[in-house]
Write a protein that binds this DNA or RNA. Structure first.
Lengths: 229, 229
DNA sequence: AGGCTTGTGTAAAGGTTCGGTAAAGGAAAA
DNA sequence: TTTTCCTTTACCGAACCTTTACACAAGCCT
């Protein structure tokens, strides 16, 4: 499975150098020496990723990128002059996936190409089942639900966050300040009983048959009792 | 309604600086001061992207990354010491999406975060060309129509897009920001009720016999209820 | 033991935010 | 122009987070 790179770079020497190196690394390479050609090749649909110089004889690389983004989400890495921070950040903001300062280390270029292609491949892959199981509880982040013996618990947004954090640390104590920060996203202030209330409500919803699933550690916080196995 | 960043960085000062900046830029930020906490938060907490320092007091950042990659494809940006080229390339090869040399320009960090999140969002939305069936609904992208029991629904262009996106993620929660981006092609601004209206109209057209086909997930977004099997 | 302090459980009230939707306004297509 | 559709506005009700209040339990001191 060979990845196809389109190299848009006007400097003949650099282009050939990179093309040769990419080929040895298992890429199949198309080349363009100016923005116009680059654009039409990129739109021609038969490459996986574009390496695009910003300084081109005809159209500015950033404009090529803008044009491209109007029509496709093809991954693009920009080649920028070293030190030109503005170009880089603007490039990212316009929709580039990454940039590399010139003159670039070919090994780094390859590493970045791979990183982006890997990301694309992962993302397009069907959802990996990211669910996590703790005894009779199952967390389904995609659905934002927690199931108890395959029945969904009717949790509010905050309750979901709190329980989910406790489960992620099942068996160890989560301090109140951390729980607050991680689940509610703010600092725990004095006399704030919000967390206690959420825990209280959670205990109710988890069933009073077993009130110690969420254990209180006085002066510290809470701990989800890991099921005995 | 914002993107959630997990910041794993032991230097208290830098972490708070970045956290504050990211917050002003509209991210919601979770923090961890060491590798162990970072790892369990990344696995448990559902965040959208991780910013991971390589130099950590307990576990090396690269090991955290390796551990993480065994279980998830969560996007990761590494914070590396400036000049340490090896760490960076190894980082990318181990599975990082990007790296930033320390001390970093916060604006650049944001640009890179956005670039990766944009890529993920695009890719996850990339499967829309074949006809698909969901229970009694059938999407025909070529005709831009959706059939309910072989009768075409009379949808407007936007309604088609909204329903199509929800169906493409049937069973999972689609956040409002994403739905906006994918179906309407723009960012969700405060007080914008456009989406709610389209969903409301869709529910009517889908038949009020079953008002929960499109489920509201308060504070997050909507989810098309996958037919029970 | 008794009293004191501190921390926790929880019911109920308070108040805010959020989503549903009718209707009006505005933009674009026909 | 007329029609269709998208967006905004406005109001309402519901969901739910937070606060308050009181009761109880645990630890500590004398």
């Amino acid at each position: 499975m060979q990845n196809r790179v389109l190299l848009v770079e006007d400097d003949e020497e650099l282009r050939q150098l990179l093309a040769r190196y990419l080929t040895t690394q298992g890429f199949s390479v198309r080349e363009a020496a100016n923005g116009r050609d680059g654009l039409s090749l990129a739109l021609g649909q038969d490459c996986d990723i574009v390496v695009l110089d910003i300084m081109l004889p005809d159209i500015n690389g950033l404009d090529v990128l803008r044009e491209l983004r109007g029509k496709t989400h093809l991954p693009v890495i920009l080649l920028t002059a070293r030190g030109d921070e503005t170009d880089r950040i603007v490039g990212l903001e316009v929709g580039a996936d990454d940039y590399i300062p010139k003159p670039c280390n070919p090994r780094e270029l390859v590493a970045r190409l791979q990183a982006i292609l890997r990301r694309v491949a992962w993302d397009q892959q069907a959802d990996v089942d990211a669910s996590r199981v703790y005894g009779d509880l199952r967390v389904e982040p995609d659905q934002r639900r927690i199931y108890q013996n395959d029945t969904p618990l009717e949790l509010t947004a905050t309750e979901y966050e709190v329980l989910q954090v406790l489960l992620a640390h099942a068996g160890s104590v989560v301090r109140k300040t951390d729980l607050m920060q991680w689940a509610l996203g703010r600092r725990l202030e004095a006399y704030d009983r919000t967390l206690d209330m959420h825990v209280s409500n959670l205990r109710k919803k988890l069933g009073n048959d077993d009130p110690t699933r969420i254990e209180t550690v006085r002066g510290l916080g809470y701990s989800y009792r890991v099921p005995t196995e």
